[in-house]
Design a protein around this nucleic acid. Sequence first.
DNA 1: ACCTGAACACCGTTCAAGT
DNA 2: ACCTGAACACCGTTCAAGT
Lengths: 237, 237
Amino acid sequence: MTRTPLTRDDVLDAAAALVKRHGPAALTMRKLAAELGTAVTSIYWHVGNRESLLDALVERTVTDMGAIRPAGRTPADRIVSVARALRRELRERPHLIAMVHERGLTERMFLPAQQALVHEVHAAGLRGARAADVVRAVQFQVVGHVLVERNRERAPAQSPAEGELWNPPRGPAAARTPGTSPDDAALARALARPAEPERIFLLSVRALVESLLSPGTGARDRSKPGTPTPGTPSPGH
Amino acid sequence: MTRTPLTRDDVLDAAAALVKRHGPAALTMRKLAAELGTAVTSIYWHVGNRESLLDALVERTVTDMGAIRPAGRTPADRIVSVARALRRELRERPHLIAMVHERGLTERMFLPAQQALVHEVHAAGLRGARAADVVRAVQFQVVGHVLVERNRERAPAQSPAEGELWNPPRGPAAARTPGTSPDDAALARALARPAEPERIFLLSVRALVESLLSPGTGARDRSKPGTPTPGTPSPGH
DNA sequence: ACCTGAACACCGTTCAAGT
DNA sequence: ACCTGAACACCGTTCAAGT
């Protein structure tokens, strides 16, 4: 009874399954060998060593991420749709995404999405360096938000909890702390509630896209980073 | 010649130094013991085990981060100044920040900054849940940007490089690829150049703040996050 | 209260040897 | 071309024993 020979893909599959179930720390060469029913050293013949095994896993995740198809009527809408699609894809592969991040490959994983963004920003009428800036700003924001969000989910019990800071002490001690939070009960309550990442995500992406796609606003390049922002006009009503 | 007894702080100091120089992976109990000139097992008496040693290190970093003082004339300026200060602080402690991130404590580290943001958003005239949303949006963006930026710095040689995608093939093959990048040489060149994170950072923060602080724009809550964006078909493979 | 060495279970990796 | 067991150097951790 000759066994069908072990292939490199067999190794990668088993490794990916282990990581998906128990995280990267659970992926040891010995456990992997046991899973595959081979000697530990066989694995080395197929994948070199643990480091390049993880590299291959990450590589797979990056290419698996695939192309993103924008949806929506306006360029702004389509950019937002790309952002949401990226967010969803990432949230389905938490462990592998963490590995991609640890290896500094997050940006490369986002190249297909970048291509879509370029198309939409161009459609919105932006050109040249300005368009490139907008593409990168959106990309940074989406990737960053996803990283933050994942970080929050893995956070242990927060102490002090976010909300606790915004219930100002009622006693005379309140006056002592300089720069303390203003008295806004609704705000305090809102911050005491857990964040709703998807809502914040949409809110932010829309705000950023709206601001960057409309020319002539203060968000243009000013070439002098230190210049003060003129007060935002408050439309009387 | 009785040696002055080892303290918990001695252990933490040596550990922090090791991490700062060579990263967390270089922090082994045996190396640490050698550094301190004690037996490996002494360390266990002071800090329990490696895991809680790292916890203590992270805890220290979080509290060391300290208070942030806003600067600038308008609330928008001061928010931007907080964002820049945070960015600078983080970039000075790359390894430790990575550890904070791995432990899911990034958000907690940002609580002091959150307090400052609340103050400024309130000064800008926002109240209640809307103000909380803006605080969180800015916070997510700043933290996210810093994480992305750090990720980029650690990235190995990118292949394909960002720019390569935006030099459309000159031959007849150009017409075949659907949704390809538009013909914008300046854009292609701009994306081929390395990103300037600080500029992108300022650009984005300003755009977001400007958009969120001005009421009545489309960036308001639309209360239906789940609407028409149809899910992009999963990348068949 | 603090420190020690010995021992254990577990790693990743190399290598000569098998088929 | 593929697989094997033995061996090496290195981990984190426990524990009984010292002072």
